[in-house]
Amino acid sequence: MSYALITGAAKGIGRAIAEDLAAKNYQLILVDVDKEQLAKTAAHLQTKYEVSVKSIPLDLSDPHAATYIFRQTVFYHSKLQIVINNAGYGLNGAFETLGLEQQLNIIDVNIKAQLRIAHLFIPVLRQVPNAYLLNVGSTTSYQSVPYLSIYAASKAFVLSFTRSLRQELKGSSVSVSCLSPGSTDTDFVNRAGMAAHTKKIADRFNMTPQQVARIAVRGMFKGKAEIIPGFTNRLNAVLPKFFPKIITERIAAGIYRPRPEQEPPPSTLLTPS
């Protein structure tokens, strides 16, 4: 009986990954700030797949959150095989107009929480023969994104950190991967406060959370370094390497710049994740 720990698991990609693993008979430890939705997800998975689900409602921006998760899961450590750092969010707007504390909170969740969880649980994962650490980045990891600057920068950190950690753990029992999804049909765009024109662009390229989860889990078990679901998203990750940065930055700014809704949106492949 093996366990998987998943953050940001109440809905979206996190929930879909949890369901994919439950279907494979993994027992689950789910963490999310949305207590009500987390309880619904846990009940659904327990009923449908007859797996054990431990729910931990928690705000990962709290600097003590990772330690709390660690202490709450000590009983399961000997059977913990998978840790998935999925929790994260962004805010759409100009850096100077968004609240500073809000933007620092993004760093707390997207970067600091991932680091703390990884640091605490890597020694735990080393105890089992085949273990997996999956950090969730974004296709924005591969370029600067004006008006989504802190989110994109945080995801660039996740990608760089994960690849470095993968090399450090090479030869150990722990396989480290980074999932970089593109535009996905989740609540991300609403929480980020994106305007209608940005949502319309995202809708054209949306993948479902279930599609992303299937590719993520398969890639994780194969030990891939980077998992980018969908051809368009893989193209978006590669294209910025062949164009001057100023061009890709201008395109991204055109997508995410807040403006009156009567202005026509730009046409481009670059989309949020």
Rank of each mutant, 00 (worst) to 15 (best):
Q127T: 08
G88A: 06
Q46D: 04
L98Y: 00
F70W: 06
L134Q: 10
A131R: 09
K79L: 15
T41M: 08
V124P: 02
N92P: 03
Q72H: 11
V51N: 01
E96L: 09
Q114P: 09
D59C: 03
I84L: 04
S52D: 15
T67A: 13
L125P: 10
A43G: 14
A131I: 09
H119A: 14
V53D: 08
L100V: 15
A87N: 04
T67C: 07
V53G: 04
L120Q: 10
F75P: 03
H44D: 15
N86V: 05
Q102N: 14
L125Q: 11
N135R: 07
F70S: 07
G93E: 00
Q127I: 01
S61E: 06
A113C: 11
K54E: 12
G93M: 01
P63C: 07
E101V: 13
P129D: 04
I111T: 09
K54I: 09
R71K: 15
L133P: 11
N105K: 14
G93Q: 02
V124Q: 05
K48M: 06
T73R: 02
D59N: 13
A43N: 14
P129A: 12
F70P: 04
I84T: 10
V83N: 12
Y49V: 08
S138G: 00
P129Q: 12
N135I: 10
Q102F: 00
L45S: 09
G99V: 03
N86Q: 11
V136A: 10
A66D: 13
L120C: 05
L58T: 08
V51C: 02
V74Y: 10
L115Q: 15
E50G: 00
Q72A: 13
G93L: 01
G90Y: 10
N105Q: 13
E96D: 11
N135M: 07
H77V: 09
S138A: 02
P123S: 06
P123N: 01
I82K: 03
Q127M: 10
A66G: 07
N86E: 12
I82P: 03
H64S: 14
L134E: 02
L100T: 14
T67M: 13
L104F: 09
S52L: 13
F75Y: 14
L133Q: 08
L100G: 01
V51A: 01
A43M: 12
V136G: 09
I107E: 03
N110Q: 01
